[in-house]
Structures are given as C-alpha cells and as structure tokens.
C-alpha cells in the first residue's frame, strides 16, 4: 500500500465515524455533568443532614430557661447564660481590635506600600498567617499572654487571641474592597489637591466600606465558632456567674472590670457537654450547637448577600 492510500483509508475510516465521535463526546460530557451534579448534591445533603441533625437533637431543648440558666451538674437544669454573655463580650473585644488593625494594615498594603522586600515579607506573612492552624494561636496566647505577661485566662486575652486569628481575613477583605475602587475616584481626589491620607480617608475608605463590612462579618462569624485557641489558653472551666457589668449606675457609668473576668463561650460550653458521657448533656450540646449554627450561618448569609449587592452595584 502506498502512503497516500493509507492516509485516504484512515480519512475514510474517520469520516465514517464522525457521527459516532460526536455521540461519544456527548455521552461523556453528560456523564461528567452528572458526576459533577452528584458531588454537588451529596455535599448539600451533608450540609442539610448536619443542620437537621442539630435541629432534631437540640431544638426541643431551647427555651427561655436554657438561655437564662447557668451550667449545672444536672443536664435538665443546665443553661448557656454565662456562655452567650461570654461570647458576646469576647466578640466585642475581638471586633474592637481586629477591625481597625486589619483595615489599617489592608490600607497600607494596598495604597501605601511600595514594591520592596518589606512589602513582600508582609504579604507572604499575611498569607501564611491565614493558614496557621487556630490552635497555634492558642499556644501563642498561652505562652505569651497567659504565662509571660500573666494576663490570666480572661475575656480580654480571649478577645485579643481571636482578633489576631481573624486579622488576615479582615486584611484580605480590605485589600479586595480597596482594589475594586475605580482608579478614576483616586485621580479625582488627587486632582483636587488631596494628599494621600485625605484621599484614603475621605474617598477610598467610604467607598470600600461595604466590602470591608463583609470581611468583618465573616471574621466575626469565624471568631464566634472558634474553640481550639480558647481551650488552649485554659479557659475550659465551670463558670456559673456573669462578668461584671460594663455599665454601672455611678460615675463614670462604664466599667472595664469585665475585661479581666474569667469567662466561658458557646463553643467551649458545647465541647464541654459533648465530652460528658450522659446523653442529657449531648442534648444540651446539640441545642448550643444549633444556636451557634444559626448565628454563624446567618452572619455568613448576611455577608454573602452584602457581597451580592456590592457586585450588582458595580455593574
């Protein structure tokens, strides 16, 4: 057979099966799309199972008493009063520290930093910190805040630890929000004679606020659910009292003693109850978990909705 004959024959063989090639391709496409869809559905079923499991196990336990009682040795009488108050106060400290610091750092990296080795180092560092396991932050807090500085296992230390933990989240969100602001806004401000800080504080920061808010909400939600670093600083104790009130009736009406108070938080209380053998405590854990889930899912949902609004606003 000559070479040309072979080519012609091959071409004929292929031409004959063109139809089949297309059909086969369609089949494998469909098969893949089905596999993708299956993975997707399984993932969603798992999420649903998680939520439903918590709802079935814990829903009935949530009532007024559960929210207004202290933990107890009897599962039926135990509640999460000290835990949710602790969570609220710790998150307050976390937000007060992480948001200003994270926004400031994000602004610096996006607006001020020149490309040099220091900027490079900070960037690699932030990216690495975002991936450091949360329990390592707990060890940092234990070694530094609790042991070296002797600050104790307090609301302040817990808030500070979680603030460091979510700092990368807020830095990254700030940078993304700032980066999405059109160049024209910057040029308009500089064109009017604004200096850097006037441009940043007067025009860039206000425009970036929704994006930063999104990051802050995601960060707060993460901090609410964090357990490991707080266990590590040694805060897993029986807390059947509330921290001193931040507000008092006499001058100066506010009081910072609560910062140095021992505390417990929702995930710690939940972990504590999971570790008990009695099924009654497991019900309490499920109820606490349901509340935690509701809080974090709502916050994440809010963040997603905000981001969606921002994207629609830009288009």
């Amino acid at each position: 057979m000559t070479e040309q004959a072979i080519v012609t024959q091959e071409a004929q063989a292929r031409a004959l099966s063109d139809d089949e090639i297309v059909r086969k391709a369609h089949r494998s496409e469909t098969r893949f799309a089905l596999i993708g869809l299956t993975v997707l559905i399984v993932t969603m079923i798992v999420l649903m199972a998680l939520i439903v499991d918590f709802a079935i196990d814990g829903m009935a336990r949530i009532d007024r008493d559960f929210l207004t009682s202290f933990p107890s040795r009897r599962p039926g009488e135990a509640g999460i009063l000290s835990a949710w108050v602790g969570t609220a106060l710790v998150i307050l400290v976390t937000a007060a520290m992480a948001v200003p610091l994270g926004v400031a750092a994000g602004l610096y990296l996006e607006e001020y930093a020149r490309t040099n080795w220091i900027t490079d180092l900070i960037e690699i560092n932030v990216s690495n910190l975002a991936g450091v396991p949360s329990i390592i932050y707990g060890l940092l807090a234990l070694g530094l805040f609790v042991q070296t500085f002797q600050l104790g296992q307090t609301i302040f230390v817990a808030g500070l630890t979680l603030a460091l933990l979510i700092l990368p989240i807020i830095i990254v969100a700030t940078r993304e929000a700032v980066r999405s602001i059109p160049l024209e806004i910057r040029e308009a401000a500089y064109g009017l004679g604004a200096d850097k800080w006037q441009t940043v504080s007067g025009y860039i920061l206000p425009a970036a606020r929704p994006g930063i808010l999104t990051g802050a909400i995601v960060g707060m939600s993460r901090a609410i659910g964090e357990t490991a670093p707080i266990i590590t600083i040694g805060a897993l104790t029986f807390i059947a009292f509330l921290p001193p009130s931040p507000i008092q009736s006499t001058f100066p009406y506010v009081n910072a003693d609560w910062l140095n108070s021992p505390f417990t938080v929702l995930p710690i209380q939940m972990f504590n109850w999971i570790s008990r053998p009695q099924a009654g405590f497991h019900v309490n854990a499920a109820a606490t978990g349901l509340i935690l889930l509701a809080m974090t899912l709502l916050m994440n949902g809010l963040a997603i909705w905000l981001r969606y609004k921002i994207r629609k606003g830009i288009r």
Binding site: I185, A188, A189, G193, Y203, A207
Partner: peptide, 24 residues
C-alpha cells in the same frame, strides 16, 4: 483644577462632590 475624560464624581451627594475641594 482638572476635569477628566470620563465623568468621575465621588460616590457622595452632589453637594459633597462640589464641596470636596474646599474640605480638602
């Protein structure tokens, strides 16, 4: 002063836009 190729008002009120240069 400068006026740019594309209109580039700040995402603020009309008043604040005009007053920007004064605030600065």
């Amino acid at each position: 002063g400068m006026v740019f190729q594309k209109p580039n008002p700040f995402p603020k009120s009309i008043f604040d836009n005009v007053a920007s240069g004064l605030y600065i």
